[in-house]
Design a protein around this nucleic acid. Structure first.
Lengths: 128, 128
DNA sequence: TTAACTGTACTATAACGGTTAGTACAGTTG
DNA sequence: CAACTGTACTAACCGTTATAGTACAGTTAA
């Protein structure tokens, strides 16, 4: 399900939130699905429960999951969650752009990459 | 030449290395050009000389610049290293775009993010 | 009711990275 | 010699991340 790269500089709780968002985007997790409990996931990943709890708290604050004390944490159903996921994806992309710029890539280069990805061969854009 | 965003979570030395690579990519700095001294750049940016030194050390390790004790630091003539960094950064960015698309972000959203980043970043300050 | 689970809320601490501060030494230049 | 250059240290501070431990409240099933 979710794998953690302990060598990475990306915080573990970030990897968890990203992993769950990805799982929902891919359709593996759907609205109403129950997530592993804080303690069980921590045990499975070999990390501290507090770290999992932090990830779940962030996901809940973003509306991606909802938690019920005593019952567990579940994937959110409402469309607000989808918006939250979009927002989260946008944030991730923003970091990627910042990184690209820091590495010296100019804007034109980025635009070229985007065109390459978003134009699968048949293009419907009129200008350019 | 280089501006530092002190609010950013991106380390200052990373911003410096990226800035110099970018300046070389843009053609502002060319092979053999002399860089500001460790102490003068630190003074100009209002940071500690150690931080600049760290950035220069990284750039030298990557083959982007070369330093001569007593003389200064200079842009390397061999652009292979810089090109390699650009290439790897482009690959990384490409994966980020693919991911963003998979997450459901449309092209306009990506363009907006790019504009946001590339508008406030590079400044050609003549004062200070 | 009891027991075992669930989320949640704390405090304390360790570890790490980034940055600053200060000092020192060696090479270059005028 | 004086003033610059890069370089190499050590020490300290701070914020973030992660761990550790404890505690409390809600849920569920035996």
């Amino acid at each position: 399900m979710i794998t953690i790269d302990y060598k990475s500089r990306v915080p573990i709780y970030d990897q968890i939130t990203g992993g769950i968002i990805r799982l929902k985007t891919l359709g593996v997790l759907k609205g109403g699905d129950k997530l592993p409990s804080v303690r069980s996931l921590a045990l499975k990943l070999g990390i501290n429960p507090n770290t999992v709890q932090k990830a779940y708290a962030i996901l809940e604050a973003d509306g991606i999951i909802y938690s019920v004390s005593g019952k567990g944490s579940f994937i959110s159903e409402d469309s607000a969650a989808a918006d939250a996921i979009l927002e989260s994806a946008a944030d991730e992309f923003k970091m990627a752009v910042e990184n690209a710029r820091r590495m010296g890539l100019d804007r034109a280069r980025l635009e070229a990459v985007i065109s390459e990805i978003y134009e699968g061969g048949i293009t419907d854009d009129k200008n350019s």
